[in-house]
Design a binder for these strands. Sequence first.
DNA 1: ACAGATGCGGCCAGGTTCCGGCCACATCTG
DNA 2: CAGATGTGGCCGGAACCTGGCCGCATCTGT
Lengths: 334, 334
Amino acid sequence: MAGVTERMLALLATLQSGHTFTGPELATRLGVSARTLRRDITRLRSYGYPVHTQPGPGGYYRLATGAALPPLTFDDDEAVATLLALAALAARTPTTDQTGPAGRPGAVRDAATRAYGTLDQLLPARLRPRLVALRASLEASAFAMPPVSAEHLARLGEAIAAQEVVTFGYTDAGRARTERRVEPYRQVHHLGQWYLLAWDAGREDWRTFRVDRMTDLRRTHRPYTPRELPATSALAYLREGLQRDRHPATLVIEAPAEAVLEVFAFDDVTVEPLGPDRTRLTVAVDSWHRLLLGLAFLDADFSVTTAPELAEPFGVFGARLLAAAGSGTSAAAP
Amino acid sequence: MAGVTERMLALLATLQSGHTFTGPELATRLGVSARTLRRDITRLRSYGYPVHTQPGPGGYYRLATGAALPPLTFDDDEAVATLLALAALAARTPTTDQTGPAGRPGAVRDAATRAYGTLDQLLPARLRPRLVALRASLEASAFAMPPVSAEHLARLGEAIAAQEVVTFGYTDAGRARTERRVEPYRQVHHLGQWYLLAWDAGREDWRTFRVDRMTDLRRTHRPYTPRELPATSALAYLREGLQRDRHPATLVIEAPAEAVLEVFAFDDVTVEPLGPDRTRLTVAVDSWHRLLLGLAFLDADFSVTTAPELAEPFGVFGARLLAAAGSGTSAAAP
DNA sequence: ACAGATGCGGCCAGGTTCCGGCCACATCTG
DNA sequence: CAGATGTGGCCGGAACCTGGCCGCATCTGT
């Protein structure tokens, strides 16, 4: 709590992200009580910033666009966060997928690597030693991901802002290539992937596309009239769509809900406590392997309530494990 | 003159023009004494604003915006990559853990949110519209992670650069809290977590610590003489054993060596072909879970030749899988 | 229709911060 | 060297900020 003004600037920077925040959330971030936050918001309004609010459940604070902000700079923490974010992004390794059309120029990962190296040139000199030291101390593990073109994401962003139809070639999971003509609405980040939510003019329906699977992305400069989104948020729609392709499964696990949640934190799951040591887990995974890993970590009994297709791989692999366990014990006496 | 904050914002707005102003002039504009103006300038500087001044006749105050920077600035792709990286980092949600004392100040996530909102102001005006459009088009899914302190990471980075012993309190997975005194070497990013690789002076051995589990991190200003790292990279060490005990194990897998190598590419393994469809795998894993995942993906029979300690978990988990597989088939008709 | 979540603003007591004035000093121009 | 201008320490009184508590308004979901 170092001064009102600093906090106000932090509040502005936070709201400028364009997201919505609840009161308690903002108060926590700024390290003040909810009451003081309300006062800060009032103050912000008195200075002319258009802060929209919504009471009731799902209430929020949001900064309307178009506000002329004071010049904002990075403080230490922001510089550190930026460096870390870039480090994590730069650590991505292109999947050993088919190399495709001569590598993708302007891959986000490469740009992140370059930015990671030169970030300190951009920032005030006083942050430099800190960043240099930090960068020298970091190491990041590779994380296989299909390469995404920064140019594509930027171009889509502009098309969305301009409400302009775009066209591209799309290679779906089955390797079938089609030409698309869509009205783009949102770009959604989910589990390391970037998706585009758009109205597909050819199919006359909402679709999500993986940005990394697009080629020949072109803006047409032809405007479209916005439609109402098919869900409260693009993310919600994306989730629904992804679940459709995947295998939703429901399991009952003999472990506390917190433990289950911790193990599956990375995934798209719903956790529902059934008792102190019993939890229902609903999960949509693209393969049963990831599920397996989580279950192994939990070290608890479980049963599959829906998703009979899991029975076979679970049975086969369980048998293999038992066989290996048997062969192991025969030789040794620790 | 209604409050400090408003005056500070007015001061910023005034200085933002890029012109120079004398002290008395600014003081008059803001309606305060020259003394107070100096204090305001000091405050601005403490927030990170580069306010240039010049004493003597013709002296001035001037805000050095990002204009006069070295030629090395961000290009389009780098700016886009930075924005995306921050978006992903800002999307993190603190785990419901909440053990800590009511919110950790300086959480990386909060800083990332602010930086995400602010980034366009730091970059050349040319890039700004592009970034604004891009940011408005993005949405990111929440990602539960324990909050990490930016301050801790930065401080550790500096201690590593200075080769300085640090002390901290550490709460391990079992919630036991201990005081540590270590020689820090590297910070490693792995699956969304930050780890510190250090020589634990008390334990006389190498250890890895999760940065989010540290409290009261302090630099001692006591230098240490560097030791040879226990592995070629900190990451390799981390992979070998996140916990202290690493169990080397040897397995024979009924699959081609290339397939095995691909699955275990990121781990520290030795692969030795025994035949066209038979491979010996030597692996040092901290826990059997990771091994399990690889084996599941391989979809091949295997046997454990050394490492009897694997027999029990494999047996237990195999039995659980079989039980679940049985229960699944019995109930489902669809 | 009701309960609960969420935002709003009044009131108050305590303490932190801010303010203006004064001064000695550093730095630079002419 | 003189004067203009920025710097920062010190001080006492005043202004402001903060957190807690309250009752109220608004909205969602059951």
